[in-house]
């Protein structure tokens, strides 16, 4: 019941926050997108599943949400392996939890081609998670391409921060 209420609240708040020009978007995904758009609107922890406490514990590896990549690479480097596996185990143990994986690239080259490259990064994290016990329905891998950089400018220091996959929990 609490969960239902919180979803209703999120839907209501999302509706209020969106512009009047916002169209009706048919959600062809697993039907949990509303949880995402409410992420900025949840002022308190009330109504959240209890597993969020664990996810946001700064002492837990689960609070780490970004995998970074070498130039032209899509494979999860060994230093991020434990991070990805921890999230995979968490998903396995919490079947109600689900994530969206957002792949990102640096800004060199075609925007649409970069979108496809970012998708490869997100897909590689997804595959690793599924091999470690997470279910396909719990994971949506998408790409933001070069559109949402962490760091601006041209140069390796900016580019290395932008080559990443971010792990977002739905409803967070």
């Amino acid at each position: 019941m609490r969960k239902l209420l919180s979803i209703a609240l999120i839907v209501l708040l999302s509706a209020c926050a969106s512009q009047t020009t916002q169209p009706d978007v048919e959600d062809l995904t697993s039907g949990t997108d509303n949880g995402l758009s409410g992420s900025d609107l949840m002022g308190s922890d009330s109504g959240r599943p209890s597993y969020f406490n664990q996810l946001n514990d700064p002492n837990s590896i689960l609070s780490q949400r970004s995998v970074f990549y070498d130039y032209d690479s899509y494979t999860v480097a060994s230093e991020y392996r434990e991070l990805v596996l921890s999230h995979a185990r968490f998903l396995r143990d919490n079947p109600a939890a689900s994530v969206i994986l957002q792949g990102n690239t640096d800004d060199r080259g075609s925007r649409e081609y970069n979108l496809a490259l970012g998708q490869r990064r997100a897909d590689s994290v997804k595959n690793m998670m599924i091999l470690s016990g997470a279910q396909d329905v719990q994971i949506e891998s998408v790409s933001l391409g070069e559109e949402k950089p962490h760091a601006m400018g041209h140069g390796e220091s900016a580019w290395s921060q932008n080559r990443r996959t971010d792990i977002l929990y739905r409803g967070e």
């Binding site: 978007v25 969206i100 998408v142 933001l144 949402k148 977002l168």
Partner: peptide, 20 residues
């Protein structure tokens, strides 16, 4: 990217009506 991921829309200029 308004829904946290890329979605393709078509918008009619005259009515501003749009759809995913």
């Amino acid at each position: 990217f308004e829904n946290k991921k890329p979605v393709v829309y078509v918008q009619t200029l005259s009515t501003r009506e749009r759809r995913a």
